[in-house]
Write a protein that binds this DNA or RNA. Structure first.
Lengths: 260, 260
DNA sequence: GATTAGGTTTCATAATACGCAACAAATTGG
DNA sequence: CCAATTTGTTGCGTATTATGAAACCTAATC
């Protein structure tokens, strides 16, 4: 039977269009008008207007009464809540996050792999005013974030090739874009059991992550500690290794993973 | 122009159907098959199958490889993350939630009003093993939850009539179903500035909530402390009044609300 | 006040989504 | 182990829906 990668069934165009409309709304641009969406998606204004009206009826978008513009609606939050609720790694990790925040005083995140990206599914924020704000749902690349690399390190070479873009995009001057160098780096991460990334994805931002394993030993999520480089640089981030690994071992054990 | 309650534009049926499919997945039933969805929604199997394929391509559902059944996908989480990101009350409340959990040792939630329901938009869980697990996105009724009543108390009589169902459904023997009694109760809540609910929505469950106001003094969200009745009954829940009100005043002040 | 821009609605029709039937694969029960 | 049943997918023709064009309404701009 065909996989989703090579569908023989033509997709339902109206659903694709509706999702494309919703995906135009971002953290940077939370509100958009009919005409703007029409231009971006190359759809007629009347098509966009009708679709927005239906999405609004279904609570997936709403209209800001003050600006008259559309934005994503709270109905998405309820659906997402159901989607999050089935993630075992999230439930397993959640009781430990605040302890790790207290120990490190930095933001802690849980992330999973989804279709070539790293998706945050849980987080506990640092109490410090300058902190990493990785919100739930945020997607980041795999090859230049600590969580992403920890996820990649748990994949076979084949799986890795399937999820990584070619060429690897550069996000900062420090991003590794050579596949061989990345592969070697991932082998090292697999051996040592954690990944550290300094400013490969975003200037001034560093993090350390380790895998969370299921009862079969497969990497199902990662636990990461993130913050501004000026606070983590030097030896500071290495002091997080032990508490991080202790925590991921505990969480993995809660999920049934036994080291043989 | 017509509101979403009385649309003159016919809705896009395919979008409605797709959303109906997604809404079949719940916390209680996170995985469903094509035939089951077909029966529930009275749609042909081939229609459901095609729609699920497109939703899967768009990451709003995925297929559990172990069971072959469909479930809500992580793509929803990213959209919901954007939706949550625009909620000022949530961002304003978030730094205070852990303090309130430490003070009360109970679960703390932030909720907003959305189309006749109370929706959780933030939460910090109690560290105790028996605790209220109000997940983000969870929807609860207005007339029998503390958050719901705190939201209702901030509405005009007209607005209230618009959002409340008639008759008021009973969830437990303690649910108030008489509109006059509810109205009097809400007037009292408005005067005292907080709502307490004991087992009106769910047996064994109680909570206290207070409104979060914006710069105009309008109730935009609520902050609630919830837990099992056996821990909160008697005088315990009243000891939460002062810390809760202090916190909602602080959060409201952060949002620009000034008591005249 | 005129013009422009954004958004909505009516209408005819082009194109899509649909149901039906057939088929393939998986599951169930004897 | 095999037949029967159930589930899910796909090809096809067409009924129905979604669509774009045009007209209209409202708000914003000059």
């Amino acid at each position: 039977m065909s996989s989703s990668a090579n569908p023989t069934t033509p997709p339902v165009q109206s659903i694709q269009r509706a999702v494309a409309i919703m995906r135009c709304f971002t953290e940077a641009e939370p509100e958009l008008g009919v005409t703007e969406l029409s231009k971006r998606l190359n759809l007629h204004k009347s098509t966009v207007s009708r679709m927005l009206t239906t999405l609004q009826q279904e609570r997936l978008v709403d209209k800001n009464p003050e600006t008259g513009k559309y934005r994503l609606g709270l109905g998405l939050i309820s659906l997402a809540g159901v989607a999050l609720g089935r993630l075992n790694a999230r439930a397993a990790a959640q009781p430990y996050l605040n302890d790790l925040v207290e120990t490190t005083r930095e933001t802690v995140n849980v992330a999973v792999l989804d279709r070539g990206e790293c998706v945050n599914i849980e987080r506990a924020f640092s109490p410090q005013p300058i902190r990493y704000m990785g919100w739930i749902g945020r997607r980041t690349p795999l090859h230049c974030t600590a969580s992403g690399k920890a996820l990649l390190a748990g994949l076979t070479a084949e799986e890795r090739t399937a999820v990584l873009p070619t060429p690897l995009p550069a996000y900062t001057p420090k991003t590794i874009t050579d596949m061989n160098i990345l592969t070697q780096s991932l082998a090292q991460i697999d051996r040592q059991g954690y990944a550290i990334v300094n400013e490969e994805y975003e200037a001034g931002f560093s993090s350390i992550a380790a895998p969370i394993r299921n009862h079969l030993g497969q990497v199902m999520a990662t636990l990461a500690i993130s913050g501004p480089t000026y606070r983590l640089e030097g030896e500071t981030i290495t002091t997080f290794i032990t508490p991080l690994l202790q925590m991921t071992r505990q969480i993995s054990a809660d999920l049934g993973y036994r080291v043989m």
